[in-house]
């Protein structure tokens, strides 16, 4: 069953999920490579958690306007808005606090607010809130052709943008002062990178959920970094690893009942990292 899923023979839906997860993994791997080079790994965690209030608010807004509230582009718009607000909050608090404290505080607060809004929705009993909490851990079971297309186009756009910006992104990550003297605006580059990571987070909500999307961004990237000696090598390898884990994870979970897709993808990536660490890790330290 796993084998047939790996070969895209396990039915239309399973094939769709596998391809979607592979595209997401590639985009996340590529974006994550630049994110970790910029040393902002956990920023993506704060961003992912900050999508939750937006999802809830978007649901409420759509219900108030007479919809059923589960219109995906609407939910993603809401998620994007509060995630951007969370990002802004991290930057603002970082002026006064260490960045890690600012990140953690924003993560917890936005997430808490999101939970409050979700319980509010449950209490209101409006629309069709059932399954809204799948954004926490993702759910590929009901993935539609349209969802796979969103993931595919979104992922391709992210990869294309990263390819165009690869030089300034690498220069800002390596030596921001030099980059600035060479006419690159580091703040603008950071904003662009965060926007691309946000796009990956939004697309990934459907597959891995907001808690585990950070693994798709970070784990393949740090694995690739232990092998590659150049930035483009790191990004390419990271994207390939992400795609392989996404594809393999989706196929395995399609083959075994009850096995959730997102966590399996994450465990595959973690396995690749552990193996790499044993082979390429520094013995001393």
């Amino acid at each position: 069953m796993i084998l047939s899923a790996l070969l895209l023979q396990a039915g239309y839906n399973a094939a769709l999920v596998s391809l979607g997860a592979a595209l997401l993994g590639a985009a996340a791997g590529a974006a994550g490579a630049f994110l970790t080079l910029r040393r902002r790994a956990l920023m993506s965690d704060a961003m992912a958690h900050a999508t939750l209030p937006g999802i809830g608010l978007a649901f409420l807004a759509m219900v108030a306007l007479g919809g059923d509230g589960r219109f995906l582009p609407g939910l993603m718009l809401g998620a994007g808005l509060t995630a951007a607000a969370g990002l802004w909050a991290v930057q603002r608090l970082s002026r006064q606090l260490a960045e890690d404290a600012a990140t953690g505080a924003v993560l917890a607060t936005f997430y808490g607010a999101g939970i409050v809004i979700l319980t509010l929705i449950q209490g209101l009993g409006v629309g069709r809130p059932a399954g809204l909490e799948t954004v926490l851990l993702g759910s590929t079971a009901g993935m539609l052709r349209a969802d796979a297309l969103v993931i595919g186009f979104g992922g391709a756009a992210v990869v294309a943008a990263l390819w165009v910006l690869r030089r300034p992104l690498a220069m800002v990550a390596f030596d921001p002062i030099h980059a600035r003297l060479m006419g690159i605006n580091p703040r603008r580059m950071d904003a662009a990178l965060m926007a691309l990571v946000l796009a990956v987070v939004l697309v990934g909500l459907n597959v891995t959920g907001l808690i585990l999307i950070v693994a798709l961004l970070v784990t393949p990237a740090v694995t690739a970094r232990l092998w590659a000696t150049t930035v483009s090598g790191t990004a390419t390898l990271s994207a390939a690893l992400g795609a392989a884990c996404g594809y393999g994870g989706a196929a395995i979970s399609a083959g075994i009942p009850d096995l959730p897709t997102g966590p399996v993808i994450v465990l595959l990536a973690a396995g690749a990292f552990a193996l790499t660490l044993m082979i390429r890790g520094h013995a001393d330290g």
Binding site: T36, R39, R40, A41, L42, S44, D45, D100, L137, I211, L212, V214, A215, L217, V218, T219, A221, V222, R225, L226, L259, P260, G262, P263, V264, V266, L267, A270, F273, L277, G281, H282, A283, G285
Partner: peptide, 24 residues
């Protein structure tokens, strides 16, 4: 230490793997 990695990235790798294992 062994991957000479920023602590934030190391945390992200470890806690997501553990959490995923828990869910599975």
């Amino acid at each position: 230490r062994r991957a000479r990695m920023e602590p934030g990235a190391a945390m992200a790798v470890v806690f997501t793997a553990m959490f995923a294992l828990g869910v599975v």
